[in-house]
Amino acid sequence: MATSLVGRFSYLQQIWDLRYFWSALVRLDLDNRYRNSFFGIGWSLLRPMAMTAVFCVVFGKLFNLSLAEYAPHLIVGMTVWQFFTESLVVGCNTFTAGAAYIRQQQIPLAIFPLRTALGTGFHSLIALGMAISVTGFFKGIDPVAMLSLIPAIMILFLLSWCLAIVSGFAFTHFPDTSHLLEIGLQVLFYATPILYSATSFAGSRGHVTFVLEWNPLTSIIALVRVPIVDGTLPSMQQYGMSLAFLGVVATIALVLLRKLERNLVFWV
């Protein structure tokens, strides 16, 4: 027990010792993504923004909601969803992208999913800034409730790191992972309250409410959406559900690292 605890700390120490390396990789990724400065950022945000605008017009009418009511709800939901999906999809290539380094020297492999989480996290923070601006424009912002975004962002960041570890290992062993993910994420998108609200089905009983209640993304999105859009603090149940989900994904990620990390060099 003591040895394994020491082992874990020394693993974290190794990650810390290589901080200049992985932060340089993250900066390189961001530069490649935002090449040509400001327009780069603009273009990379254009697709989700365009999708949000289309959804706003179509579903706002369908749900009979005003733009001021629906746009903040949708844009925050889309931002968190985008972060979640990018962590998984970009995470698929996390180890193959680092193969050249993995084959040269023994390094803690968790730095590569960390690179993914930091890169997608930075991008999502810009998107979140836009979402907050849109909400501020339509409804105003409650600064006290906004403080609860700090733990929410930490939970999301850790979740992203763990998801990238899981999808990275899955992809190195099963190359159809990214394809299966695409299908799974499409289903999950409609089973998550992004376009609609979790309370839209309140009062009705059946499969939909059951799915929404037990879908951990409902709570994860609420951690960000509630303080920005509603100006209140998320409920303890939402925190509990989010932390439980993070715990499950983190456990899977740790088990995969422990079992498969050492032999990964043979598969990348």
Binding site: D17, L18, Y20, F21, A24, L25, L28, Q104, Q105
Partner: peptide
């Protein structure tokens, strides 16, 4: 820089 950081610089 990147290569040197990998080597612990």
């Amino acid at each position: 820089h990147i290569r040197s950081y990998l080597h612990g610089e």
